[in-house]
Design a binder for these strands. Structure first.
Length: 243
DNA sequence: GCCCAGGAGCCCG
DNA sequence: CGGGCTCATGGG
C-alpha cells in the first residue's frame, strides 16, 4: 500500500499553525484544577482519571466534565474499588453535570469491574490491538473511548478518531463524511509512524483546529489547511467568481 | 428557546 | 450490517 504523504503534511501544517498541544488534561497530584501537562510517566491514579474522563466526555464538552472530575477528586473516587462500592444513585448524582449521568454511572462501574480482572499493569504489557479488543468488550467503551484510553492513559500508539477528525478529513476530501470508524483509523495508522507522541499531538491538534476553524459552520478565513482542502478551495473559487 | 458538545447501546428491518 | 432512537446537562 502506497504511503500517503498527506497525513503527515496535514500534521505539519497544523503544528505550524497551533504549536504543540500537549496531552490529555490531567489533574495535578494534589487534585484541584486540571491542567495540560506533559508528563513522561503517569501514576496509576492519573491513568484511571484519564479513563474516567474518557467515558464522561462522551458526546459532552470537556467543560462539563471538569466540574465532575473535581467532585470525584474531593470524594476520593478516582479509585476503581471505591467506585464499585459507591451506590449507583450516589455516583450518578455526583457526575450529574457531565450529562447522561445514569448511563455513565453504569459505564463507570463496568469499567471499574473490568479493571479488577485486568489491572493497569497487565494492560500496559499488552499489544495495542489486543488491549483494544478487551476494552471494546466492556459495556460503555466504544471505539473512540477505547482508543483514547490506549493512547492517553496507556500511552500506546492507537489513533483516536472523533467527530472532529471525521469532519476535518471529510472536508479536505480525504474520506467520506460517513466513513467507518475503523477504516479512517486504519488510514491514519497505515500512513503514519506508530508513535505515541505523534498520535497524541496530532489528535490534540485536530481538536484545536476543529474548535478554531473547522467548526460545524466552518471559518475558512485563515485556515492552515486551506491549501489542501477541497471544501476550502471550492469556497474560495466561488467567492472569486462573484456572489 | 435553539443548537451544540472530543459516543455508545439497543432495537428493528 | 445500518439507520434511527435514546440518553441529559450546561454554555454560547
Amino acid at each position: 500500500m502506497p504511503n500517503d504523504a498527506r497525513f503527515m503534511a496535514s500534521y505539519h501544517a497544523l503544528l505550524k499553525a497551533y504549536g504543540s498541544q500537549g496531552w490529555w488534561p490531567v489533574a495535578g497530584r494534589h487534585g484541584g484544577k486540571p491542567e495540560y501537562k506533559q508528563r513522561k510517566r503517569l501514576t496509576g491514579r492519573q491513568k484511571l482519571e484519564i479513563m474516567i474522563g474518557a467515558i464522561l466526555t462522551q458526546n459532552t464538552s470537556w467543560k462539563n466534565v471538569e466540574k465532575v472530575m473535581v467532585q470525584l477528586h474531593s470524594r476520593k473516587l478516582i479509585d476503581d474499588k471505591k467506585m464499585l462500592v459507591v451506590s449507583h444513585k450516589k455516583l450518578a448524582a455526583l457526575i450529574r453535570s457531565s450529562g447522561y449521568h445514569n448511563q455513565k454511572a453504569i459505564k463507570l462501574k463496568h469499567m471499574a469491574q473490568f479493571l479488577q480482572q485486568h489491572p493497569l499493569r497487565q494492560l500496559g504489557q499488552m499489544d495495542v490491538e489486543k488491549v483494544r479488543i478487551l476494552l471494546l468488550d466492556v459495556h460503555g467503551i466504544g471505539p473512540e473511548t477505547a482508543d483514547s484510553i490506549i493512547l492517553y492513559a496507556l500511552q500506546k500508539p492507537s489513533f483516536v478518531i472523533d467527530t472532529y477528525t471525521k469532519r476535518i478529513f471529510s472536508r479536505i476530501g480525504m474520506c467520506r463524511e460517513d466513513v467507518k470508524y475503523d477504516l479512517l483509523r486504519m488510514q491514519f495508522m497505515d500512513n503514519l509512524p506508530h508513535d505515541t507522541i505523534l498520535f497524541n499531538g496530532y489528535h490534540s491538534l485536530l481538536v484545536e483546529h476543529a474548535k478554531q476553524h473547522c467548526r460545524k459552520m466552518p471559518l475558512c478565513e485563515g485556515c492552515p489547511l486551506l491549501k489542501q482542502c477541497d471544501y476550502g478551495r471550492k469556497k474560495q473559487k466561488e467567492s472569486v467568481s462573484g456572489r
